[in-house]
Amino acid sequence: MKLNLYENKEDLNEHVDVYYSNMRPVIRQLIDTVNSERPKLKGRPADEDLDDGEEVILDPREVYYLDHIDRKLFAYTKDGVFRLMDTLTSCEEMLWNYGFVRVSKSNLINVYKIKQLKPDMNMKVYASFDNGERICVNRSYKKSFNDYLQKMRRMG
């Protein structure tokens, strides 16, 4: 995408014009950023030794997947694991345009971070990530996962 920046110190009415051919997720992300509605995931390190009591703002693009365990929601990134205060359902709605899709009752995965999607010998399908972790794509979510990928590609 071509980016043009124009500096005009006399123009106090700052504005952004977006020319697009297709309202795809990256355009929606841009709109969110301009409207200051870019989703932010607030979390704290899951490891209590690393938790200094301050909230950390996570960029959704850096998150591999979200895992809901024992009524707690965790975000897995390259830098570690963070506990989030949101619910999995609210994250699912908030992060739809950011590549996040539900693959089981307790997991949302970031399709931009998937390194490999592969079934193992017992036919369970796993999404692998750079951090070496893998998440099972549940059979019940196979159709919605496929629909999501098709939509993302069409909008792509």
Partner: peptide, 11 residues
């Protein structure tokens, strides 16, 4: 998996 690669490339 091919779809995912395509989405990642487009992005």
């Amino acid at each position: 998996e091919d779809l995912i690669k395509e989405i990642q490339e487009n992005a």
